[in-house]
């Protein structure tokens, strides 16, 4: 991202929504006391879920939830970009196209025809894509949903006028820091931790279940080696592929690892 300059005394902040479930906006709303402190430090000019509505306002920071899934959305994200100094993509939909990007790998029109009574009412693009495929994004906060801690850290860094620290290590490091016992090594569970970006605090492994990669790929992820290992712990080649094709299926390393296995099956 570019060098953030020092913010105005009371920066103007907007929270926008595209194709998404609103869960990342809830990460804001669930901040509790921090939300009250935040609202006294910044001017929340647009945040429909919390009250203020002014989608066309010029802002210092725009948090954007959701993927680009319709033609109208492409126009709207360009408009948001042109009115925002910093644009923060917030959550798996905004950073990787989200769960709805599964349609990119299938016949999306057929799915729509199967589900909706009047499919013609829908103005859907053939694919669901990340914001960065349409506009310049200054910061990506991964996760489904993002963690409130990450949102606060990003706001704080921008207010200081410094680049937010990117958290891109693997979940395994947080497992070991919390002294969580490895579920893959002790139980042979098909854990995605070794290729998944940290930020959740190893939430699933701490409760004895395998990571399903809701935070998307970590930097330098060896998806091929993990794919082979998933087969080694008993998953079929197709099932191993499906582990990559979930919430972050459109994140490039996952798309490739998953597709290769799915195609081999066909």
């Amino acid at each position: 991202m570019g060098e953030p300059a020092v913010m105005a005394k009371k920066p103007r902040v907007a929270v926008h929504k595209f194709s998404s479930c609103d869960g990342c906006q809830l990460a804001f709303l669930n901040l509790g006391e921090d939300l009250l402190r935040l609202s006294s430090m910044v001017e929340l000019v647009h945040f429909a879920e919390a009250g203020p509505v002014d989608p066309d306002a010029e802002v210092d920071i725009a948090f954007v939830e959701g993927s680009i899934s319709t033609a109208a959305a492409i126009e709207r994200i360009r408009s948001v970009r042109s009115r925002s100094r910093f644009l923060v993509a917030m959550g798996a939909c905004a950073t990787a196209g989200g769960l709805q990007a599964l349609r990119n790998l299938a016949d999306g029109a057929a799915w729509v025809a199967d589900i909706y009574a009047v499919p013609a009412e829908l103005d859907l693009l053939a694919s669901s894509t990340a914001l960065a495929q349409h506009v310049r994004v200054d910061l990506e906060l991964w996760g489904c949903p993002v963690s409130g801690r990450r949102v606060v850290a990003a706001v704080r860094a921008l207010l200081f006028g410094v680049s937010p620290v990117e958290e891109q290590d693997k979940v395994c490091l947080d497992c070991k820091r919390s002294q969580t016992v490895c579920v893959m090594v002790t139980r042979g569970l098909p854990c995605m931790g070794p290729v998944t970006r940290t930020g959740c605090g190893a939430l699933c492994p701490r409760f004895g279940r395998d990571c399903y990669s809701c935070y998307g790929p970590a930097e330098n992820s060896n998806v091929e080696a993990l794919g082979r290992r998933l087969e080694g712990v008993g998953l079929s080649r197709t099932a191993a592929g499906r582990r990559f094709l979930s919430i972050n299926s459109a994140a490039p390393p996952f798309t490739e690892a998953g597709r290769r296995r799915a195609q081999d099956h066909e």
Binding site: R37, V152, C172
Partner: peptide, 26 residues
């Protein structure tokens, strides 16, 4: 996998990072 599990369980590995966690009000 470059996951760091070997270095985390290694009883002699000592590398560490500094992490700053500011209060929201700075």
């Amino acid at each position: 996998l470059a996951c760091g599990n070997c270095s985390s369980v290694c009883p002699t590995c000592f590398c560490h990072a500094g992490v700053e966690t500011p209060e929201l009000d700075g």
